[in-house]
């Protein structure tokens, strides 16, 4: 494997966004790019990252390899990279280590690190293709604000989507709260628009603790997409350039 990223910031942010949710992960490398899938310890949330080969220049992966990496270790090493450094990942066949180099674009500084790899026996889940009943695309900062504000009151949030809009409601010991958003097109700045596409009404309840955690990815993208269908996990997607993405799935709370 040899994969060169123009900006180390991208990998720094991705790892930063998921390191509190998942610890030891396989980075599955093949000629289409670098993918990661991992559940949190309680098996309530699933992280799915795809960094497409087009996000790297150049990208070369001659044989499929799984790089088992501890994200705390990776974070320590990535801290040594500046956001605008050129980052290159290298690994041999059947590797013991992954090699990372950080090159400063404006000086002759080159730093180089090896991280020891681990054998990670992770179950890989098949994520079904789902036609979601409701898809909401909103500013990622707005979603962060809603989850943060409501998490101060309650452990759970009910998300209801109807043709009127989307409503986030919570009930807690001190009282209750809700935030409603309607479809809204911001003509000056499309990134601030709220787009809602609905085929049938949806009402689901989720743990706010996980949603707050997902919002650590807000720095990766101006926009976030929420996809919901009744009685299936919520998909929270942060799109990256070149069709790469960081997705989080969250199992709902169901029943009385």
């Amino acid at each position: 494997l040899e994969a060169r990223l123009e900006q180390a910031a991208m990998l720094k942010r991705v790892v930063d966004a998921i390191k509190d949710l998942v610890q030891d992960c396989n980075f599955d490398c093949n000629d289409s790019g670098i993918a990661l899938q991992a559940m949190d310890n309680s098996h309530v949330a699933l992280v799915s990252m795809m960094l497409k080969s087009e996000s790297f220049s150049p990208f070369r992966c001659d044989r499929n390899i799984a790089l088992g990496i501890n994200l705390t270790s990776l974070t320590k090493v990535l801290r040594a990279a500046q956001g605008d450094d050129i980052l290159t990942l290298k690994a041999e066949d059947a590797p013991d280590v992954v090699n990372l180099t950080f090159e400063s674009p404006e000086s002759d500084r080159l730093s180089e690190y090896d991280i020891k790899l681990m054998d990670i026996d992770q179950e890989h889940l098949g994520i079904p293709d789902t036609e979601y009943a409701a898809t909401i695309t909103l500013p990622s900062s707005e979603f962060s604000r809603i989850t943060r504000d409501l998490s101060a009151l309650s452990e759970s949030v009910a998300i209801e989507c109807t043709k009127e809009g989307v409503k986030f409601t919570c009930t807690g010991d001190i009282g209750n709260g809700s935030v409603s958003l309607r479809q809204h097109t911001n003509v000056e700045n499309d990134a601030k628009s709220v787009d809602i596409s609905l085929t049938e009404p949806v009402a689901l309840t989720f743990s706010l603790k996980y949603l707050v955690n997902f919002c650590k990815a807000a720095g990766l993208s101006d926009r976030v997409r929420l996809c919901l269908s009744n009685e299936v996990p919520l998909l929270v997607e942060y799109g990256l350039s070149n069709n790469s993405y960081l997705r989080f799935y969250l199992a709902p709370k169901i029943g009385d």
Partner: peptide
Amino acid sequence: RPSQQTIGKFFGNS
């Protein structure tokens, strides 16, 4: 009180 489901309940092993 609704109970927290797990991801495995919805997504099968691949």
